[in-house]
Design a binder for these strands. Structure first.
Lengths: 141, 141
DNA sequence: CCTTGAACCTCTAGTTGCTAGAGATCCTAT
DNA sequence: ATAGGATCTCTAGCAACTAGAGGTTCAAGG
């Protein structure tokens, strides 16, 4: 059985984050030592590693919650898991597209700037006047 | 002089967001009508458009605060504005790289999945076992 | 065995950039 | 004059944590 600190060490998830995951029910309530300190077994460790990996892949916590509950039902069809992953892929692709547009806009802005005074700074100018902008709608990134 | 609703209409920034910007000092306190309702002139409108455009380009509010204070000093060198924009460009590029790694990982995960039951679902498997993963560190996206 | 200090505990509050709602007031059009 | 939409202030909530206060427990060294 591992202490929360060791668990943190083996999974790379910070101690307060582990407690946070427990508090929102993503991890089950941990067993406690005589002195009320959390103790974790291998299963908890695997569950946390799963969460961490999914977080690294950008899945929001409620998707992870869903994926975890799916992984507890091995006999079910994996279509639901696929749907979640596909949704995530679409969102990642979308964010890439948007960010690439931003990148171009920022590059253009910087390329044009002769680096004189603020009054003829293209950075400020482009930001001030939407007409100078190639794109009309960026949306959230 | 425009009401907050009209200002919202012309700039595309939602009413509560405008009030929020005022509350955090990004916009100056607006003049008020006899009945205590906010009134905006052209200058306020321009300032808000600036903010909106910078937000669309992904600048965080404290960067925008800095850019706004720069734009108030037209005689200064625009080097500082360039630094902020370059920093933003670096961060955008970095996020693109990370997202592209995620995209590949998700694609690989989905490609491998034969869509049977959860027990042989590659999506769940990849998430469960970091060894199945091409990338070791994704960091925040 | 005792002490020291690191690790742990709970709890609250802060972060970023808003958004949603309650309950009251104002303004405009009929 | 009144109906309704728009505005006002204020609080609370969202994601996904992070930071800090103030107190307890554990493990290693003397």
């Amino acid at each position: 059985m591992l202490s929360i600190g060791k668990l943190s060490g083996t999974t790379g998830v910070k101690v307060p984050t582990i407690r946070y995951y427990e508090s929102i029910g993503l991890l089950p309530e941990a067993d406690r030592s005589a002195g009320n300190q959390r103790l974790y077994d291998l299963k908890a460790q695997e569950r946390l590693a799963f969460i961490r990996h999914a977080r690294e892949l950008g899945f929001p916590l409620d998707c992870i919650r869903e994926l975890l509950s799916l992984s507890d039902r091995p006999e079910m069809s994996c279509a639901a898991a696929d749907v979640i992953a596909k949704r995530q892929l679409v969102s990642v692709r979308d964010r890439i597209i948007r960010l690439q547009a931003l990148q171009q806009e920022l590059e253009r802005m910087l390329d044009q700037c002769a680096c004189g005074t603020i009054s003829d700074c293209k950075v400020i100018e482009v930001l001030s006047d939407h007409q100078n902008c190639l794109h009309s709608d960026h949306g959230e990134v």
